[in-house]
Amino acid sequence: MTDPVSSENLLDNLSTAVLQLNDKMCIDYANHAAQALFERGFSLLAGCPIYQFVTPSSLDVERLKQSIQQGESYSDSEVNITFVDGRHTQADLSVTSIVDAQSQYLLLEFRQIEQQKKISQENHQWAQQQAAKELVRGLAHEIKNPLGGIRGAAQLLAKELPSNDLKEFTNVIIEQSDRLRNLVDRLLGPNVRPKFHWYNVHEVLEKVCTLVDLDPSHTISIVRDYDPSIPDVYLDQDMIQQATLNIVRNSVQALMQHPDIKGEIRIVTRIERRVIVHGARYPLCVKVSIVDNGPGIPNELKDTLFYPMVTTKKDGSGLGLSISQTLVGHHRGKIEVESWTGRTEFTLYLPIERKDPQK
């Protein structure tokens, strides 16, 4: 028989985050999943109060103290955990009181459910968005065909009219037909094939930052937080630049509507491991986060945010985010969004290929 695996090794291989707290609510132990959840190594967690890392509103302080004093255990489902750095996650929480050699401890188990909910929600939204795109594509073609006939008939009619005054009416028909045709083309999205090459993603993002910084209509600050270790990515530079620019401009416009807020947009790049994109698993992805401190996205728009013609701006076309998602989709990536009052975060995931994916 083989030797049994050590208890510590078993705990470190759990997907459940496990913390041990002493009677001072300080962390005595954290397995690997807990270190990943808190985004800190054990050396930075050990001996620190748990409320140094999560907000008191996330975990009921009095209930935890009561649990350790009275030796009670309890469980909570779908607990919203807010970290002091602004991150959010949702987890099922189990709290177990332990007495050992006259010392009292709490064992906290966090089973993250946010990822499973995200995958389910993503698949549902992706299916809806694909259905909406097919509907728009079908309607667009049905509109473009008669528009061409109307424009052609107006041109022929203009040649037969004796008066320039009358030709003004046919010119209006032609101009409006062209305007509708351009709108339909924008609804259909980019119709050119991507031109993939190896690029440093930060060079692409810097072009976006430069364009936004040069805009004199606002005083919003752009903060960069780049990971210089990210390797070159196989992408279409213009497409990713346009996708990112659409999102950043949306943030700028949202912040400009609230002059009482000192607007700030942070652009953060990191490496993300084991990312699932529309059912496919990628070992490595570039994660580009665009975070603003604006008013947040209205709840009623969150599920339809990437649909064409959905917008909160009076003069907006509602096509920017739809086009961004299409452009990122050409790279087998995805866009996620989280938003609440004071923080909106759009996250682009772009798979990192080890060889040209087109070959």
Rank of each mutant, 00 (worst) to 15 (best):
I222V: 10
E168K: 14
R87P: 01
I297A: 09
I297M: 13
I81E: 00
Q242V: 04
Q102H: 13
L10T: 09
L108F: 06
P351E: 07
P259N: 08
L161Y: 06
D303H: 10
Q115N: 13
G263E: 09
W340Q: 13
A154R: 04
A17F: 01
L183R: 11
K355D: 01
G138S: 10
F110G: 00
V286G: 06
K65D: 13
L139K: 09
L305W: 06
D213A: 15
Q115R: 15
L348R: 05
D185G: 05
H197Q: 15
R343M: 09
R281W: 07
M256H: 07
F169K: 10
S229L: 02
G296P: 07
D23H: 05
V337I: 12
H258G: 01
G329A: 14
L301I: 03
R274T: 10
Q35C: 15
R266S: 10
K359Q: 12
I276H: 06
M239E: 07
Q253P: 00
S7M: 15
G138D: 11
P56S: 07
Q116W: 04
L44V: 01
D238F: 04
N31C: 06
G71S: 09
H218D: 08
T96V: 03
P298G: 06
S73E: 05
Y282I: 02
L11I: 03
A34W: 01
T210Y: 11
K313S: 15
V99S: 11
T311Q: 01
D28C: 02
A46Y: 11
S6M: 08
Q257W: 08
T219P: 00
R181K: 13
V136C: 07
A34R: 02
L205F: 03
T16F: 00
F306G: 04
V275T: 14
D3F: 09
N31S: 02
K262L: 13
L106K: 03
S58A: 13
S43D: 14
L139Q: 12
P228Y: 07
H218Y: 11
V201G: 00
G318V: 04
A91W: 00
V18R: 04
Q20T: 14
N246L: 12
D238N: 10
A153I: 11
L147Y: 09
I271M: 04
F42N: 01
K24N: 11
E114N: 12
